[in-house]
Write a protein that binds this DNA or RNA. Structure first.
Length: 285
DNA sequence: CTAGGATCCTGTCAGC
DNA sequence: TGCTGACAGGATCCTA
């Protein structure tokens, strides 16, 4: 999915466009994608939009909340006076809404619409009250944001998984919030740590560097609008994936490492496709 | 308790 | 062309 920077990009984009708008009607096209009762949010106004890790939290004026998680292929597209699309990048960014991947959409009283699309149906929109939000299992386990956690806390959290490889550990949302497959590979590359390194082998200096690089990479991505900007075009004008430009190693297998020119390798670690430079991120540490 | 693998679901792509 | 298996920017459940 969309990782923390993409969800933050969505949060900022929606904050500018749908605050104070009234939800006239909720259209549920796929039951699995909508949890809770739509009647609690219909006729309500959007008060604010928050984010915890990769979870979007939309508050309504009756103190109900919509929790939105995009998982692997979720995206949100707003069509109003302009079009704002972010999340999983695919042709939906350019096609007519609702599309075959639209699972839920919100019709606002001013005639504009917000579409929740999700090819694989892993994501969801969930309606909860204050208590439901407090008791949510995911949010309860979720660690602090990359900018709020201290190097000591991060190192301590990592020690709960000392025999697991470091890549699996930083993907664990109870260790640090918001890291996903792209930023895990990118941060480990930047930190010169082999993704398969057993977590307990990393000393406090190494984990401090890793945290610092996670912060840098995510901030850089947020500053440029997430890695999934709708309007990104290559210099020749063709549709381009921002990721191609942003990433140093992610999906760059068999291309030269930007630091040492060795070819980037792709393998499978922690059940996920993993990209690294065998020269810059040596296995034996 | 942890670690690793299967699983949810749809679509695309490489290789026969 | 048609089939098959692998894989995908995530998280949970199950097993040992």
């Amino acid at each position: 999915m969309p990782e923390l920077p993409e969800v933050e990009t969505i949060r900022r984009g929606l904050e500018k466009r749908i605050i104070n708008k009234q939800i006239k009607k909720v259209h549920v096209l796929c039951e699995k994608s909508f949890i809770g009762n739509a009647k609690y949010i219909q006729k309500q106004n959007i008060v604010n939009i928050d984010r915890r890790g990769k979870m979007l939290l939309i508050k309504l004026n009756n103190d109900m909340y919509m929790m939105i998680h995009l998982r692997m292929t979720g995206q949100l597209i707003y069509e109003g006076s302009d079009k704002f699309a972010a999340g999983h990048p695919d042709d939906n960014f350019y096609t007519k809404m609702p599309s075959r991947h639209t699972r839920v959409y919100f019709e606002f009283s001013d005639g504009t619409n917000l579409f929740f699309n999700d090819q694989r149906k892993f994501g969801f929109v969930k309606v909860v009250d204050e208590l439901g939000l407090q008791e949510d299992k995911f949010l309860q386990k979720l660690a602090k944001e990359p900018w709020d956690i201290t190097a000591e806390e991060f190192h301590q959290n990592l020690q709960r998984h000392q025999n697991q490889c470091i890549k699996a550990s930083i993907l664990d949302q109870s260790v640090i919030a918001g890291v996903g497959n792209i930023y895990a590979d990118e941060a480990l590359f930047m930190s010169k740590i082999f993704p398969g390194t057993i977590t307990k082998k990393l000393d406090t200096v190494a984990t401090k560097t890793l945290l610092h690089n996670i912060q840098i990479i995510m901030q850089r991505s947020i500053d440029s609008g997430g890695s999934t900007m709708k309007d990104y075009r290559k210099s020749d004008g063709s549709k381009g994936n921002y990721l191609e430009k942003f990433a140093q190693v992610f999906r760059k297998e068999n291309q030269p490492c930007p630091v040492c020119q060795s070819l980037i390798q792709k393998t499978r670690i922690a059940g996920r496709g993993t990209h690294f430079c065998s020269h810059c991120q040596p296995q034996d540490r």
